Amino acid sequence: MPSETPQAEVGPTGCPHRSGPHSAKGSLEKGSPEDKEAKEPLWIRPDAPSRCTWQLGRPASESPHHHTAPAKSPKILPDILKKIGDTPMVRINKIGKKFGLKCELLAKCEFFNAGGSVKDRISLRMIEDAERDGTLKPGDTIIEPTSGNTGIGLALAAAVRGYRCIIVMPEKMSSEKVDVLRALGAEIVRTPTNARFDSPESHVGVAWRLKNEIPNSHILDQYRNASNPLAHYDTTADEILQQCDGKLDMLVASVGTGGTITGIARKLKEKCPGCRIIGVDPEGSILAEPEELNQTEQTTYEVEGIGYDFIPTVLDRTVVDKWFKSNDEEAFTFARMLIAQEGLLCGGSAGSTVAVAVKAAQELQEGQRCVVILPDSVRNYMTKFLSDRWMLQKGFLKEEDLTEKKPWWWHLRVQELGLSAPLTVLPTITCGHTIEILREKGFDQAPVVDEAGVILGMVTLGNMLSSLLAGKVQPSDQVGKVIYKQFKQIRLTDTLGRLSHILEMDHFALVV
């Protein structure tokens, strides 16, 4: 994948999101292997301009796509893939009243899908469409860049269908997702969380590099694949309309690839034109409109599966009536509230959605109805927002919020430890010299600072030695090549209790 991002070429006709291997024109390309080798690009942008032909009021008969309808489940399912879809609609009884809503608040519980998330729908649909058009064949390999849930859905379907599955996901995604993927037989590649989507090191860039190296491999490409919004247009939206008897006044959905909100909203605009569509985008993402909503100094966020630093091709923002931004604290607070007060075992993005819903639905009156999409299960986040310690460490809970008995030293300040200034190293000294210094002084790690004293990161003896043994660096290389740029900081005025929580999850903390 090139470091400079080429513009994806656009073909003359058809839909841009065809499933299957992508040609340089962004659509299915038939021909000899030699032709494909000559024409197939190194990668295709996940934010390529959409060429979708959908228009409100256009006859369904003019759609270029294969459409399906929700099917009634048999008493005995032939395999677990038949437990994807037909998820329950559940009334939220307490939270709406707590925040003064007059309307009825309903939750579409997508964590009841077989793999635990709304992404099971698009995973199965992308595979079925690729099999139907002859792209996927027995023994082929599926590769997908994902925040985890699409990966789980694909790995689940691949396990049943017999495909090899490789999932490329950023490091910030939970260990629970990784464990589930491994249990399903998927191979996992992790990428830096802070890598831009168009960087060769991003999950998108690495996935395309693997595709170019592995024979008979395919990126189904949830960011561009029409099967993504079509899955929701054909099934999720129809289920909502049936469950609500066609009567709903507002739908609120958090947005990642945009397939969920695009597919549902398009069908609702056709069948229930008075329904307002509300999009939820986390602070630090750029999906919301108008652009002024996205202006923030924050560039990272903890909530998973929603928000991006690019506009995915499948996201149709014209069908969203209003956007709201959400933050991590309210997302996790509301997710825990949904679990504790409503018994809905949902993930953090569901918290984002409901946090926005109780604001947006203030305009609705008694007798009206708001539906929220709860995308995934708490299963993926047992060591994250479900953990009091994690919430404390991230600053989303305060010590006084917890009532468990603490040891005698818990409320003492870090400054009472009488710490001395640490050994520091410059980023320009060599790895070999740094190892000598650390061994001589008896230290395992040291902060790396520039000549102005600005902290650049941390270097550890173990990481340097393993990097040297693996051949990633040489003793003569500058130590700046092996620094940890993500590390926890703590102030002298913070409590030892807070430091204790940090050290339970990290090997060190830097006192500043």
Rank of each mutant, 00 (worst) to 15 (best):
G263R: 00
A69M: 09
N93H: 07
S61F: 10
D198G: 08
K137T: 09
P70L: 11
C275R: 00
A69V: 13
P33F: 04
G20R: 11
G134Y: 08
I143S: 00
L124W: 14
I188W: 00
I167Y: 08
H65A: 03
G134F: 06
D245L: 03
C109H: 04
R209F: 06
S19D: 09
G115V: 06
D238F: 09
E37H: 07
K247W: 08
S117Y: 03
K98S: 14
V252K: 09
D120V: 03
G185V: 05
K30P: 10
A24R: 11
A8W: 05
H232C: 00
R224N: 09
S50A: 09
S147D: 02
P200H: 08
V160H: 00
A226R: 10
I44P: 11
M89L: 12
T191F: 01
E62P: 14
H22A: 05
D129S: 08
E104L: 04
G148V: 06
P2V: 09
S199V: 02
T146F: 01
G26W: 09
R45K: 06
A38S: 12
C109A: 11
I92H: 03
T13W: 02
T150Y: 03
P33C: 07
K177F: 00
T235I: 12
D249T: 07
A38T: 14
R121Q: 02
V255H: 06
V10G: 11
A183E: 04
E270R: 07
I219K: 02
E104T: 04
D47E: 07
S32L: 11
P12N: 11
R224Q: 08
T146K: 04
P170T: 06
D179I: 02
E34V: 08
E176F: 01
A186G: 06
G134M: 10
L42V: 05
A207D: 04
P192W: 04
H67L: 11
G274S: 05
P70C: 11
G14I: 12
S217W: 02
S117G: 07
G151W: 01
D133W: 14
R209E: 10
I76S: 08
M250G: 02
I152D: 01
N149C: 02
A183R: 02
I95M: 10
M173A: 05
G256W: 00
Q7K: 11
K247A: 14
T141I: 13
A38E: 10
A237G: 12
D79I: 07
L28V: 14
